[in-house]
Design a protein around this nucleic acid. Structure first.
Lengths: 237, 237
DNA sequence: ATTTCAAAAAATGTATAAATTTATGTTGCA
DNA sequence: TGCAACATAAATTTATACATTTTTTGAAAT
């Protein structure tokens, strides 16, 4: 509906650093629980403290950074408990948003969804055929697809909240090096959810969507690369 | 369960300004859509720009302040549409959280709820008997009561989101000078919700809770003091 | 009436100073 | 000799003062 913003681009340094920091946090280049020292940040991102503080405060609100009074900023830590809780919450809230979107369904929205699903299906999940290599374009379209599913619920704040949960969980996905993903036919799952929505079967759509999220979480929860305690526990047994 | 924080108090200026600004925003002393100029803020709150920027950024995340790139901070504007949307969202999300809280019910939680309701019932809604005068202690206990209702759902992020919605809606209540409130026996409504929870009747509890929120919104939606367009429309008719 | 240009006001960013926390090393005591 | 407590020093966060850039405002000219 709306094209890419024709606005002259914000252009403030704070926004630039915010974008760069955010990318580095989501990708895992800035490791969980790492301390974010001003010294390091100013040198790395070549900017002053004011824009950095601004960016860090915004990221704190996004749940990607943690601030401890008078002892600095830290990359938000990860844990199996948090992953489970975030997933649970996302399932609850997106189920709600999806039902409301469907209850207020319009042809225009259904067409948006068809388009989003189609575009996503035409882009490869991985850049490399032999090994898994994150495809930014796929991630972008994936994001739009899920945003569209809940986007017709009629609540900006609810949509924004879902976006935050999505970001936080996206970081877990990126941190997890699990190559099991490609074996899942996520494309089929997206198509199935769309079909349930188009057929007006809310219960089924919600069931498929939550299963979709839960499966992803289950894989990551078993990843020793991100949760070393799993390895320790296995050795004890 | 946990008493007042025994921590040595944050004590950074940014936190102090944040608290003061927040109070002034919620109370309406800083009027909606007013521009928040640094000059004015530094003089009013007697502090530098760095702590102020920090506070303003946090308040932006709370939805009480709006930031427009390169043209400063503004008190978030109010509108009938936003009030309706916030209320709708709050009903949806708290219904969800309440159901989950009840599904995971424990004696300890039920006792917490009984206590919260009891304490709230023992404090007068208004400081003055003749005219309505906001009682901070009642507001505090009211907040705790509603927080308790949803507090056992098992999701910190969901609780935090409900808190944000509550704050934003609280500002509408404070902005509205409607004296119609005292005529409502809100105390009875709180007691009825609690009883429905204790009896395990989730559908009833949710119905009472959402009706509670909706009634409040309906009163404010008709308040000409906060929405002048109502007066204009009436004159046209 | 509209546009252009210049002056001002205000937001953003840098550099420096103050206050607080963390780390280090020494002294006193068991 | 080992350990704990205290005082000191280093590092880091927080805050202030100053400089730069952008936006807004207002007047003059087309």
């Amino acid at each position: 509906m709306t094209a890419a913003s024709p606005l002259p681009v914000p252009s403030t340094q704070a926004s630039h650093v915010y974008d760069r920091l955010r990318e580095d946090l989501l990708s895992g280049r800035l490791a969980p629980s790492r301390k974010l020292q001003m010294r390091f940040l100013t040198e790395t991102y070549q900017t002053g403290q004011t824009p950095l503080r601004e960016a860090l405060n915004r990221l704190t609100a996004d749940g990607l950074v943690e601030v401890r009074e008078q002892r600095g900023f830290y990359v938000k830590d990860v844990s199996r408990a948090e992953l489970a809780e975030l997933t649970k919450t996302r399932c609850w809230v997106e189920a709600l948003a999806l039902r409301e979107s469907m209850a207020a369904s319009t042809p225009a929205w259904e067409e948006q969804l068809v388009l989003a699903q189609h575009r996503l299906s035409r882009v490869p999940r991985s850049l490399s055929a032999t090994e898994f290599e994150d495809n930014p374009e796929w991630e972008r379209l994936h994001r739009i697809y899920h945003r569209t599913l809940i986007g017709h619920c009629g609540s900006q704040s609810l949509i924004a909240f879902c976006g935050q949960l999505a970001d936080q969980l996206y970081r877990y996905r990126r941190l997890s090096i699990s190559k099991a993903f490609p074996s899942r036919h996520v494309g089929d799952e997206h198509a199935a959810i769309m079909e349930a929505v188009l057929s007006g079967n809310a219960d089924l759509a919600v069931k498929l969507l939550t299963a979709h999220y839960q499966r992803t979480a289950d894989v990551i929860l078993q990843d020793e690369a991100i949760f070393p305690e799993l390895r320790d526990k296995a050795e004890q047994t």
